[in-house]
Design a protein around this nucleic acid. Structure first.
Length: 836
RNA sequence: GCCCGGGUGGCGGAAUGGCAGACGCGAUGGACUCAAAAUCCAUUGUCCGAAAGGGCGUGCGGGUUCGAGUCCCGCCCCGGGCACCA
């Protein structure tokens, strides 16, 4: 599409100007109030895609708008530059990940600049910069010193085909490796963890005060998964210690201690340490088979066997019984794969009557069922698949079959049961979390090395700060071997102990890249300090981020880790006291979809933004993204989208011709006394300020754009018909100021033509309240809720006056045909409804 | 299965309980032009009607209200998240 002005030249010109003049560089001593806006720093994957464009358009608009409102806006940019694609490329092509990554950064930076997005580039950081690696490692040491980092054995995802450990993200939904397609298995390895669970309660409570989308908060709450209940011991039958053998008990966790009288069996996880001890010789083969199956299968497989599957393959009797302390009766202990070692105690008391999973299992194994809550009338006892409500009953009700709990409601019974357990010394109240500690070890090359040395005499030794950063050597073998590529480099691995100087080996794992992104926003506040990750005073000045922008895909991991890290950094003394939450406000934009699928490289349905930069221009593309619909909604990229983008370009052309007219288009304009029409344009101008300002505040950019379009539809004919020069000038200038954050190049160039100075250094326009009010409004007259007439009235019209006007309407008189209205609802100045 | 979103013209989407469909795309007609592009003007939910005008209409069924796209109850469909968490 041919545009009315030289889009490419003008856009390049202003992009250079903003950079050269440092328009958006700010420092902490700036007298203006601080306002920190941040768009999630991207993984550098090459030129920007449409998702980036959408993301950075919203961010840039905010930067420019807030600046015009008089804030010192901190708008930094950086790259989440460690990660797998670079390493995979290295395996494939032999190119060093740094070379690969640096090239991708140049490309992405170029397209972000072409979009017209502005940043304080002095603050640019890359996760793979030695400086950043150093501070990442310093923080790791601090966490280690405060026992927030620790080493433990843990199962990891192992791909037999690639002979390597995989990140969870690399394991597909069906449990296979994303690269080789082999089935991923679990392997136990020594790994590093961060103690995020220490903050579980605070991470949960902190959500309440955050101005975040509810859906993200809900996802985090579910992820943290706090549940209150009790833990208690089940003595193994015949192992109470009375016969001289040591006593043996199984500890179980339950959220329903009130149902204990209904416990008819117990279950332990296949990986539970007591499995061997509990299994009697006769049951050995059966238990062993189940165990083997559980070990070989992924979690995904366990689930896919599911309820419809063959339940009889999911458990095995151990041959042992435990005593239900409430009834004193023995119940059998099963091993089953529906109980997970990783949660609670890895063992449960099973109450089939009040738990659906236990119900299904009990049915498959012919175990007894005892109800302890009275189900409502009509509850189907058999719980048949095609019947109505039935089976396990988990709702509220009166306790039954429970001796001293009978007649109580569930909450009271829970409390009584816990009191009883405590008084007997066999149980206690217990809160469990679904949240696990954060496993940060990655058997990968392209990440931040974990700065640890293993010494035969001193064990785990932190590399001292003056020897940081620990950097990976360049000459390593990338081919997958099953260990971190760093382990193949003796030059790297073999070292001396910092404590005793004796021979020692380095940790060869690197950190999860989510570690890098857990504090980069803090580094941005002060990327220059030489002796610490950042100056806490600088962080105090800018933090928290007033508006954080990013994709919903980070709703849990990144956003939870960053919250944890911020709290941990405060506690180890690196971040300012009192800072608890990093992101005060979060916005998650919708994604771009094509044919119903997410637009992504792997799906091969990418639309390159660069093709638009060189044709309709960045402004038109930005306007499209703003105009397409509510920012939080997904955008469908269809065959019609190009037409809509052209439409945005057409609108900008109209603005251009209005703002920078050539003599043959706009006739001579009047001056002097103003007419009624002049005044109405003037009023429309001030109403536009109000409307657009309000829409900016509520993130309703599509309606803000619509308002501007409507305005041009009115002003253009007015100007062409020779409007009042002053009124036209005011209208056009206002329009440009309101558009400046959305379509910055056009606004800047047109403004320069008109005034010679820089529009983005101007203040956001303020409306004159006396002009912004509406002069007349349309009073709608209804009879029985149906519109019968419209009357132009003074907005200050009273209730009675409006009623009189309505009743006097000829249309109403005709409709009433002499009948008296039963009732008149008068809601001046918009509506009168006459009921007959 | 559970938890969130969301269903409005041919399409994207507007609408503090008060004129449903703003704005844009597309389409149709017109002006300009030798012609086209660009630009400008007009029409564009649907049905009845020559018109004036009127009926119907926001996934379905009820309800509250003078008045419901909007609030309440019960469904249907679509999208997303979580999914043996005891």
């Amino acid at each position: 599409m041919a545009r009315a002005y030289d889009v490419v030249d003008i856009e390049k010109k202003w992009q250079r100007r903003w950079a050269d003049e440092g328009t958006y560089e700010v420092d902490a001593d700036d007298p203006r109030p601080p306002w920190y806006v941040l768009t999630m720093y991207p993984y550098p994957s090459g030129p920007a895609h449409m998702g980036h464009v959408r993301n950075y358009t919203f961010g840039d608009l905010l930067v420019r708008h807030r600046t015009m409102l008089g804030y010192a806006v901190l708008s930094p940019f950086g790259f989440d530059s460690f990660g797998l694609p670079a390493e995979n490329a290295a395996i494939k092509t032999g190119t060093h990940p740094r070379i690969f990554t640096d090239a991708r950064i140049v490309e992405l930076k170029e397209s972000i600049t072409s979009l017209g997005a502005v940043y304080d580039w002095r603050r640019e950081i890359h996760s793979h910069d030695p400086e950043y690696i150093k501070w990442n490692q310093v923080i790791f040491q601090k966490l280690l010193a405060d026992d927030l980092a620790y080493r433990a054995n843990a199962p990891v995802n192992w791909c037999p085909g690639c002979q390597t450990v995989l990140a969870n993200e690399q394991v597909l939904a069906d449990g296979s490796c994303e690269r080789s397609g082999d089935l991923v298995i679990k392997r136990d390895l020594e790994q590093w963890f961060f103690r995020i669970t220490k903050y579980a309660d605070e991470l949960l409570a902190g959500l309440d005060d955050l101005d975040w989308p509810d859906r993200v908060k809900t996802m985090q709450r579910n992820w943290i998964g706090r549940s209150e209940g009790a833990e208690y011991d089940l003595v193994v039958e015949g192992r109470d210690g009375s016969d001289g053998r040591p006593a043996l008990a199984l500890t179980v966790f339950t959220t329903r201690p009130d149902t204990s009288f209904g416990m008819t069996y117990a279950v332990i996880a296949a990986e539970h340490p007591l499995v061997d001890e509990l299994t009697t010789p006769g049951q050995g083969p059966e238990v062993e088979e189940l165990r083997a199956r559980a070990a070989a299968s992924t979690d995904i497989e366990r689930m896919s066997e599911d309820r419809a599957g063959d339940l009889t393959k999911r458990g095995a009797f151990t041959g042992s019984n435990v005593i239900n302390p409430f009834t004193g009766q023995p119940v059998p202990v099963y091993v089953a794969d529906y109980v997970l070692m990783g949660y609670g105690t890895g063992a449960i008391m099973a109450v089939p009557a009040e738990d659906t999973r236990d119900w299904d299992f009990a049915h498959a194994y012919g175990l007894p069922i005892v109800r302890t809550v009275q189900p409502p009338a009509g509850w189907d006892e058999s719980g048949g698949p095609d019947g109505g409500p039935g089976g396990a009953y988990t709702g509220p009700g009166e306790k039954i079959n429970s001796e001293w709990l009978n007649g109580l409601d569930i909450p009271t019974a829970k409390a009584r049961a816990v009191e009883w357990l405590e008084s007997k010394g066999i149980g206690r109240p217990k809160v469990n979390f679904r949240l696990r500690d954060w496993l940060v070890s990655r058997q990968r090359f392209w990440g931040c090395p974990i700065p640890i040395v293993y010494c035969p005499t001193h064990g785990i030794v932190a590399v001292p700060e003056d020897q940081l950063p620990v950097l990976a050597p360049d000459d390593v073998e990338f081919l997958p071997t099953g260990e971190s590529p760093l382990a193949t480099s003796d030059k790297f691995r073999l070292t001396t102990c910092p404590t005793c100087g004796g021979p020692a080996t380095r940790e060869t794992d690197t950190m999860d890249t989510f570690v890098d992104s857990s504090w980069y926003f803090l580094r941005f506040t002060d990327p220059w300090t030489p002796d610490k990750p950042f100056d806490p005073e600088k962080a105090r000045h800018w933090m928290p981020v007033r508006q954080y922008i990013g994709g919903i895909e980070h709703a849990i991991l990144h956003l939870l880790y960053a919250r944890f890290y911020t709290k941990a950094l405060v506690d180890v003394g690196l971040a300012p006291e009192g800072l608890r939450e990093p992101f005060a406000r979060l916005f998650t934009q919708g994604m771009i979809r094509m044919d119903g699928k997410k637009m992504s490289k792997s799906k091969g349905n990418m639309i390159a933004p660069s093709t638009y930069f060189t044709t309709v221009g960045a402004d038109a593309l930005r306007l499209f993204h703003l105009f397409a619909g509510p920012p939080a909604d997904d955008v469908d990229w269809t065959s019609q989208t190009d037409s809509v983008i052209d439409g945005c370009g057409r609108f900008l052309d109209r603005v251009w011709r209005l703002a920078v007219p050539s003599d043959d288009v706009i006739p001579e304009q009047r001056s002097g006394e103003m007419t009624v029409e002049d005044l109405s344009i003037r009023q429309a101008t001030h109403r536009l300020i109000d409307r657009v300002s309000r829409d900016y505040e509520r993130w309703s950019y599509n309606t803000a754009v619509a308002a501007c379009m409507e305005f041009v539809n009115v002003v253009q004919p007015y100007a062409r018909a020779g409007g009042h020069a002053e009124v036209v000038a005011d209208a056009v200038d206002t329009l440009l100021l309101l558009l400046a954050p959305m379509t910055p190049h056009l606004a800047a160039e047109a403004w320069e033509h008109r005034h010679g100075d820089h529009i983005h250094e101007r203040q956001w326009p303020l409306s004159d309240p006396t002009l912004a009010v509406e002069v007349t409004v349309t009073l709608v007259v209804q009879v029985n809720g149906k519109v019968r007439d419209r009357i132009e009235v003074d907005p200050a019209i009273g209730e009675v006056e409006a009623e009189h006007l309505a009743l006097a309407s000829s249309r109403v008189v005709e409709d009433l045909a002499g009948a008296a209205p039963r009732r008149v609802i008068s809601r001046p100045p918009r509506l009168v409804n006459i009921v007959v």
